[in-house]
């Protein structure tokens, strides 16, 4: 009989240890099945949380060989194949306060979630009695991010959060914020945007772990990127992150290529950059920073590049205006809709 060994991180409130359990292999099972088998047949004192069994309640997220995943929907055989091994390591999510074994504490996360005011602030034209209006297109903008089930997989593997969680929030918090910023029924996106910026939206490391781990196929990193863009659009531009991102566009439009040499000055300003002189000298000594290349020559097609960017932006703008007009027609109750009236 093929045996599968699970090395599970245990914790009793004080001490932490690794405990090994062995089960007979059964095909077509899940990680949650294994946890339940262990609890029911080997060790009732092993603790984990699980409820719905089908990836909608978010209770059963654990780490399998260092990768956060929902135990209920993760096939055991797929994991054994992925790791080419009949031994798997199960651990609690990272970046959470641990309660016991695989059980983590969500209460502190709720407090952090509330920081970005993740609730609808309905526009003044709407009221409780008659509800809101929203076009199908605008619904589509919030539909996907409404899939977040607060399972914590994104937070567990977030490199920035692991480094320092005092000036950054869990990726799912930004996803929630973006869901409200994008909601056409909401009147106060700026409040969420400035909160997002103040809570580290520009500090994301772009490691893409959150996108990779989300069991619902959401993209918190992209949500952070969208929050950044929206914040800029709303005039929240006083940030080194904005200057850094803008430098890329400026350089592309000016020469087609990046001017690394001037990046620090453009991002941090001259005064702060002076603090980095020892670093600059270090690079110069190895020829990595060449003062002669501070002002590179543009590629010869740079005018063409500028024209293409402009043209794509124009046609996008035209498309957005058309969509907005449609959306307005849908949500303004004063405009007659012959199609519906005929029904």
């Amino acid at each position: 009989m093929r045996k599968i060994t699970f090395k599970i991180q245990r914790f009793d409130g004080q001490e932490s240890w690794i405990q090994e359990y062995t089960l007979d292999h059964q095909p077509g099972k899940t990680i949650l099945w294994a946890l339940i088998q262990i609890k029911e047949t080997l060790d009732p004192s092993l603790n984990f949380t699980a409820s719905c069994r089908h990836a909608i309640c978010g209770a059963c997220a654990v780490r399998v060989n260092g990768q956060a995943t929902l135990a209920c929907e993760t096939p055991l055989d797929k994991m054994l194949k992925r790791w080419e091994s009949d031994t798997l390591i199960l651990e609690p999510l990272q970046n959470f306060k641990l309660i016991r074994d695989l059980v983590v504490d969500w209460e502190p996360k709720a407090e952090r979630l509330a920081e970005l005011k993740p609730w609808l602030m309905p526009k003044d034209e709407f009221n409780k009695e008659s509800g809101c209006r929203q076009s199908p297109e605008d619904f589509k903008k919030i539909n996907k991010n409404s899939d977040c089930i607060l399972c914590g997989c994104c937070a567990s593997e977030c490199n920035k959060l692991s480094g320092n969680n005092s000036d950054f929030l869990e990726p799912f918090v930004f996803t929630k914020a973006q869901r409200f910023v994008a909601d056409s029924r909401d009147k106060n996106p700026v409040e969420r945007l400035s909160a997002a910026i103040n809570h580290g939206a520009w500090k994301c490391q772009h490691c893409q772990e959150c996108v990779t781990k989300c069991p619902k196929g959401l993209s918190p990193a992209e949500d952070i990127s969208n929050l950044r863009q929206e914040a800029i659009a709303k005039g929240l531009v006083e940030h080194s992150g904005v200057r850094h991102a803008k430098a890329f566009l400026d350089d592309i439009q000016k020469t087609g290529r990046l001017n690394e040499g001037m990046m620090a000055v453009k991002t941090d300003g001259l005064v702060k950059s002076i603090g980095n002189i020892p670093f600059a000298l270090r690079l110069m000594s190895k020829g990595k920073l060449n003062p002669a290349h501070m002002f590179p020559k543009p590629i010869k097609e740079v005018a063409e590049v500028r024209a293409i960017i402009l043209a794509v932006k124009e046609s996008e703008k035209a498309r957005n205006i058309a969509n907005a007009k449609r959306s307005e027609a849908h949500t303004n109750p004063d405009i007659q809709r012959p199609k519906e009236a005929a029904k």
């Binding site: 863009q229 991102a245 592309i252 290529r257 960017i309 932006k313 996008e316």
Partner: peptide, 17 residues
């Protein structure tokens, strides 16, 4: 005549670009 890819930053400022 290739240009900078945007270095994983440009999209934060201007996704369309």
């Amino acid at each position: 005549g290739w240009t900078c890819c945007g270095g994983s930053h440009l999209q934060d400022y201007d996704k369309t670009a």
